[in-house]
Design a protein around this nucleic acid. Sequence first.
DNA 1: ATAAAAATGATTATCGTTTTCAATTTAAAA
DNA 2: TTTTAAATTGAAAACGATAATCATTTTTAT
Lengths: 127, 127
Amino acid sequence: MNKSRQKDALKNLIKAGKIKHISALEVFELLRVENPKMSIATVYRNLNLFVEKGLLLKIEGAGDEALYDDTIKPHAHLICVKCGEIEDLDLDISDSILKSLREKSFDFTNYDLSIKGHCRKCSSGAN
Amino acid sequence: MNKSRQKDALKNLIKAGKIKHISALEVFELLRVENPKMSIATVYRNLNLFVEKGLLLKIEGAGDEALYDDTIKPHAHLICVKCGEIEDLDLDISDSILKSLREKSFDFTNYDLSIKGHCRKCSSGAN
DNA sequence: ATAAAAATGATTATCGTTTTCAATTTAAAA
DNA sequence: TTTTAAATTGAAAACGATAATCATTTTTAT
């Protein structure tokens, strides 16, 4: 991966912790602030590269569009089906699951756990 | 939900256990055997209805297209990133996770757990 | 400085899914 | 039963997220 102004800008967003389960389009908007000529194609290209390199986590179970996260350790997401809010849930994949995977000779590399339901606000009827 | 020949055909596929993480297009192919005039739009419409009714499970974390499953109890999927094979993994969401959800007042209704890696065949180098 | 390689922006294409709408089928009423 | 209203369908067009194309620009190496 060579250098470019556009990749540096994305790296900076990551360093600044600005990428918390947001869509490619939202990343695009952030990048456009500094560089109005940024292309959406470049955003998709570089997001994919960064995911391959392990610098970003891609979350695919949260709706129509993929979300990107600078927290690269796999973790679960609580997704409110009413208001759409997404909250992280730290979670080590449990020993019993790892054991099952071993029994099946499945070489685990990653997981994507989306837990759907209603968040506090929405289940309290306030929303 | 009223009756129709098309909905009955889908119900029959479910009863026959033919819907095991397959795509809308694959369901379409199955339905077309009996009814060549079946429309893909109707397939999508009725799959959505059946998911809402809780008669089918929709799996969204397994690639570009959604998969449908007549095993409606939420369960994990082992997805081989090399050959694409999908295997079920029965799994009760663990007590510790449920406890975390309770602490966050998150009203859990469903989860979608895709575990990515290499299946036995692909990690043995045979593939 | 120059040539080769890589990355970009703009646009177009792709693909799964949804929407539209006229025509058909099903259900309800008379 | 006929008649009328409501629901469902099929076919096609529209849609939205992402990927591919390609000429131009930027970066790297010589």
